[in-house]
Structures are given as structure tokens and as C-alpha cells.
Write a protein that binds this DNA or RNA. Structure first.
Lengths: 212, 212
DNA sequence: TCGAGCAGTTTTGCATTCAAATTGCTTCCC
DNA sequence: GGGAAGCAATTTGAATGCAAAACTGCTCGA
């Protein structure tokens, strides 16, 4: 298995998998499950520690990072800036093909909303935001976005969504698609900021901070 | 030597030291010079590869990353967004002490400008920008900024500066300090963007892209 | 009964080792 | 003489080994 593959599998385990924030990361088990030795696993742990997903306690192993309230605030602040920038850059750069793809995702997402299928809704939502970032055609931006998104994913997707907020989010997403289609960079940036700020308030209000 | 220390020493070697972009990274030598074995060095290399400072060629070792024109463009785009955000966040958060510190750095910088001491000027310049980012009091933002700054440092500081540009930069810096003192978030963000965009144009015009 | 102290075990971090891949040199053939 | 083939030496990537630190569970004393 290649180095990058270890990193992304480990990232997946941490963000979507079984290891809860704050929990000890079982080196030996993961080595067995990935069928690698400790050396490459530990290399991946250092990379994810630099990303903020893992905390390394000297001589006491590594743990899945917990988000404090301050972390949530900081991550959302930066995420807001990155998404707004992505939107601004995407407007002049997005291809018709990419626009169509997003429109389709949007339609699917609305379907899932109608069916009240939260997890499919979230999947579409995530794909739309990622597609916008991809349309910005900036690898550095995309890398930072991915790193931030990985860290807030749990908070973002575990926070329960009120019916009102959900309806509003759908509405905002229509605005997002609309602005993209009109290539209205400023408008899009503004909606994306609002959209994310609302989500952030919801997450903060839910008191979602895993500790410390 | 601690893990983080290895990473930062290696980063320093790559950004300020002797290893030129595109050059092979001499694992053995660095091990000797840091007095560590290959394992911790390689861990640091993976971390810096994730940051973009190092490229890993499978089975063919690692090299100091070269900046392409596209890299420069992407890095400046994101840096602009981050600095503008830092400025906006710093305005309501900056302490009088921090303001005083920046004002002093600014005065020093002007001195160095008068003396046409480029390297001291650059040092002050860097410290001012770092101080603004610090005043934003956002560790995630600061981390990203550091990572980007490390990658463009060479391009930024090697590009020759015309007298006109230098004078303009000084002027802009006065605007920056002024906006900070007036806590004018929007104004500061705007100046920072302009300031950076000008620098970017200079760097791009100088054709500074190291290859590929 | 509870806590301090200690021995055994586990875990961590790093050095070393080992196999596979790459590089460069030599040789051989045309 | 030029170029390809083959072999040795180096380098890489990962597994293993080892010393030091931390944890566990036990004993002993109050």
C-alpha cells in the first residue's frame, strides 16, 4: 500500500469511522487491519497530526483530536474565507459541464430533502461544496478545504438540523446555484458566507464541542 | 530532538537554507547533520510533502519542490484570501500592545528602507505580516498562513524589487497600519489584498517560477 | 479498607536491518 | 566506435529489534 493511501484510509477511519474523538488510536490494530508495519502507519499519523486530526502525546501515543469550541470557531472562520474565495474564483472558471453536474447534484439533494433522507442529503451537500471548490481550479485551496472539511465533518454532520434550518439551507443552495449560473462572483461569495455562518451558529448552539 | 523540531529545522533548510528547489534532498547528510536516524527524518519529509514543500518520487527519493507559474498563482490567490481574513479578524481583536509592536516594526522597516537595507527590510516586513496574522487569534489561519508563506518565501524575497514598487509598498504599509489603528476591517482587508496582488504581479512578471 | 510503592508487562520512539528498486559502470556484441 | 545488456553498488521503503518510558496489577502497611 502506498503512503498516500495509508494517509487517506487513516483519515477516513478518523472522520467517518469507528475511532471517536479523544479516543486512543490503536497502532497495533491498525497495522494489522491495513496489513502494514508500524513505520508507515506512524508516518501517516505524523501527517495527520500536522493537519490537526490527530494529537500526539509524547511517549503516550496518539489520539483522535477533539474539537474545542475555539477550534470550531476557528475552523468555521477559515472555512468561510476559503469557500467564499472558491466561489469567487469558480465563477469565471467553471465549465458548463461542471455547472450541469452541480445542478444535477442540487436536484438530487432536493429529492433527498423531500424524502427527509438526511444522510443522502449530506452526501449531496458535501459533493456540491466540493464541486464548487474543484471548479475554482486551485489545488492549494482545495487541499486546505479538504483538511478543514475533514476536521469539522463530524461536528457539521452530527449536529441535528431543525426543519426550519433545513428548509433555509435548501433555499440558500438554490441561491448558490443561481449565482453560479449567473457567474455572480460577489453574490456567490456572499451567499456562501451566509450559508456557512448559519451552519456554524447551529453547530455552536448545539454546543457541539467534544471536550477539553 | 523532538519530532516538531525536526520538521521545523527541515523546513528552514528548505526555505532559507542551502537546498535549492528541485534539488535532491540528501537523506544521509541531513541525518548526520541533525544527529538522528532515517526514521524520524523520513517522518518529517512526509509531513513537509503533505505541506507541498517536498515532492516524493516513489523509489527515487525526495526533492525540494519547485514552484511552477500555476503554483505561484494559486499560492498568492489563497494567501490573499488568508491575509485579508486575518486583517478583518485582527481589527476587532488586536490589543494595544500588539498595535504598538506593529507600529514599531513599521518604523524600523521605514528605517531599513531609507538605508536601502533590503534584507532587514524583508525581515521587518515578514514580522509585520506575521504579527497581523497573530493578532487575528486564529490558530488554523496562522497554520495555513505559515505553510503558504514558507512555500512562496523564496519567490517573494528573491524577486528583485523596483524602486517604484518599493516606495509603493512602504506607502501601502502605512495604509495598513493606519487601517489597523482605526480598526477599519474592510479597509484593511482591501489594502492587504491590493498589497499582495501587487507583489504577486511583480513576482509573476519577474518570471519567477523555478521550473517544470 | 484504602493508598503508596514496586515488579512485570506493554507501549512508544528510534535505530538498525533487510529486501526491492534504481543507478551507474563495465563489458560485450554488432 | 556506439549502443545495449548485465552486474555491482547505492538508495529507498518498510519490517524488525531494542532501550526507555508509561501503565497495570499486586503487595504491604497504616
Amino acid at each position: 500500500m502506498m503512503h498516500d493511501e495509508v494517509v487517506s484510509r487513516l483519515r477516513q477511519v478518523l472522520t467517518e469511522g469507528e475511532i471517536a474523538p479523544g479516543a486512543r488510536i490503536p497502532e497495533r490494530e491498525l497495522c494489522a487491519s491495513f496489513a502494514i508495519s508500524r513505520t508507515p502507519l506512524r508516518e501517516a499519523l505524523k501527517v495527520l497530526a500536522a493537519e490537526g486530526l490527530v494529537v500526539l502525546l509524547p511517549n503516550r501515543g496518539s489520539r483522535a483530536a477533539k474539537l474545542t469550541q475555539k477550534d470550531v470557531k476557528e475552523l468555521f472562520e477559515v472555512c468561510e474565507a476559503l469557500e467564499a474565495t472558491a466561489g469567487e474564483l469558480a465563477c469565471p472558471r467553471i465549465s458548463d459541464e461542471q455547472l450541469r453536474e452541480i445542478a444535477e447534484l442540487q436536484a438530487n439533494m432536493v429529492e433527498h430533502y423531500r424524502a427527509q433522507d438526511l444522510s443522502s442529503y449530506y452526501r449531496c451537500n458535501r459533493l456540491i461544496h466540493e464541486a464548487i471548490v474543484r471548479a475554482a481550479d486551485n489545488a492549494v485551496l482545495a487541499g486546505f478545504y479538504e483538511s478543514i472539511a475533514a476536521r469539522i465533518r463530524r461536528a457539521r454532520f452530527i449536529t441535528p438540523m431543525s426543519p426550519e434550518h433545513w428548509a433555509l439551507a435548501i433555499q440558500e443552495h438554490e441561491g448558490i446555484l443561481n449565482a453560479l449560473q449567473r457567474r455572480d462572483a460577489r453574490g456567490l461569495a456572499h451567499i456562501l458566507r451566509t450559508h456557512l455562518r448559519r451552519k456554524r451558529e447551529e453547530v455552536v448552539r448545539a454546543g457541539f464541542a467534544e471536550g477539553e
